[in-house]
Design a protein around this nucleic acid. Structure first.
Lengths: 136, 136
DNA sequence: TTGCGTGCAAAGGTTTTGCATGGCA
DNA sequence: TGCCATGCAAAACCTTTGCACGCAA
């Protein structure tokens, strides 16, 4: 599946140590430099791509599509759904039988096999709703 | 609110005539050229920005954030959902009351306001499933 | 006439790619 | 040893911006 390298370890360790924070490729590159274990930016991109592929990191689009950010998810994160808050960027993980039924519906009525691991539902989380006085 | 110009009319007419298709700025520019009413690309962008602002056009991020696409918002297509095929990249738009109920569920049970316009469901489309013999 | 709209080219920023070198297995 | 991974720089990519000219009101 690929070699284990110092740079690869540095990247995944950084993502883990930030506790699921969402970071852009540039921020990751910068933080690695600050920690004294700089990694070439192309390597950061290439590595992140692989991590996204194998599911241990998730990729999001921010700034209206201007750039991507990455978030550590972990391997234990297989059978549940993800809700991501547009406002604070937080990623919520929910186990929910109802959402399993959604996948069934989509298959039956639209012939489409839903990939629950890749799909992310966007919106506003409870905390941010409260902060904003539910004015959406 | 702004001047009425030939170019502006061309753009909005194109978007209307494609029946709510999702088009990238580049595709719009190209199609206008083919129709013999070419518009400078920066004008396309500037015009689309205004149309998005006043709500007559909607902007989506596709290709994992690589670019944006635009869609005319008529009466008929105000509330629909996006299914994107991982295999062929096609974007399906479905009108579906059931998915409205999903948003209700997510709000009631998880306190999360779903943004149906931004959320994209990933998976495999009917055509690609058939091609691959349902071997997922 | 006024000043917004346009178009071209150049700049801007993020992400990808080519290629020689380095390091894992 | 064989090959993947790395890093640098350059390229590619979409989008925005500067500026002079054109056109709507």
């Amino acid at each position: 599946m690929g070699y284990t390298t110092k740079q690869g370890e540095n990247i995944i360790n950084l993502l883990k140590s930030t506790g699921g924070e969402h970071l852009t490729a540039d921020e990751i590159s910068l933080m690695l430099s600050e920690r004294g274990c700089a990694v070439g930016k192309s390597t950061v991109y290439r590595r992140l791509e692989k991590l996204v592929e194998n599911g241990s990191v998730r990729r999001f689009i921010i700034d209206e599509g201007k750039r991507a950010c990455y978030q550590y998810v972990g391997e234990s994160c297989k059978n549940h759904y993800h809700l991501r808050c547009d406002k604070c960027g937080k990623l919520l993980h929910v186990d929910c039988d109802y959402l399993d039924k959604v996948a069934d519906h989509i298959l039956e009525h639209h012939g489409f096999v839903m990939n629950g691991e890749k799909t992310v539902i966007y919106g506003t989380c409870p905390e941010c709703r409260e902060k904003e006085g539910n004015d959406e």
